[in-house]
């Protein structure tokens, strides 16, 4: 966890204040906490539970339900590999394997230096561009295995 802000509590407090501690805004609060820390630290979940006066059980249920939330620290760059049908038939599995080899992580995992996290999705609605890889929201279409390494290296 080097070069990473320790959860301070102050940041979560200001997020809670921004939503007037409205328990109906639980998902939005968690999204903002995740945007702040890149994941949902255990301490912040307890703080959100207290701040919104929502049982910790409910906060934990919501945090574990949505795939967009992560309870584990994630990398600075989020790689999404599309494995939808169109991408799949155009060789998306090969792309995923190339990234796995290049970074030595499996889908859902984060590299040891917290640089990359790889995830898979089942269609991003850009089938004409398949196979497609999305890094930090930026789409790279018509991927080929030999384009994987240069693409990854373009991020620091």
């Amino acid at each position: 966890m080097k070069a990473r802000d320790k959860p301070t509590g102050q940041k979560v407090k200001s997020i809670l204040d921004r939503y007037q501690r409205d328990s109906g805004m639980l998902v939005s609060v968690l999204q903002d906490v995740q945007a702040e820390y890149n994941y949902l630290p255990k301490k912040s979940l307890a703080q959100v539970s207290q701040g919104l006066d929502v049982p910790l059980t409910q906060v934990y249920s919501v945090a574990t339900f949505f795939k967009a939330f992560s309870l584990k620290p994630r990398g600075r760059h989020i790689i999404n590999v599309c494995l939808g049908t169109a991408c799949h038939v155009r060789g998306a599995v090969g792309i995923r394997e190339e990234i796995e080899r290049e970074l030595d992580i499996k889908p859902g995992e984060t590299t040891k230096d917290f640089k990359y996290t790889m995830e898979t999705v089942n269609c991003v609605g850009a089938c004409a561009l398949g196979p497609i890889v999305i890094i930090d929201g930026k789409y790279s279409g018509q991927m080929k295995t030999d384009k994987v390494k240069p693409l990854l290296e373009s991020y620091d």
């Binding site: 979940l45 049982p55 059980t57 906060v59 934990y60 249920s61 339900f65």
Partner: peptide, 25 residues
């Protein structure tokens, strides 16, 4: 636990085939 006891110590966590009844963490 939530409505009668008023405590809410347990809930259903995760999603889909991973859904389980558990305490937080």
């Amino acid at each position: 636990c939530q409505e009668v006891v008023g405590v809410s110590a347990i809930s259903l966590v995760n999603r889909g085939v991973d859904r389980q009844m558990a305490t937080p963490f």
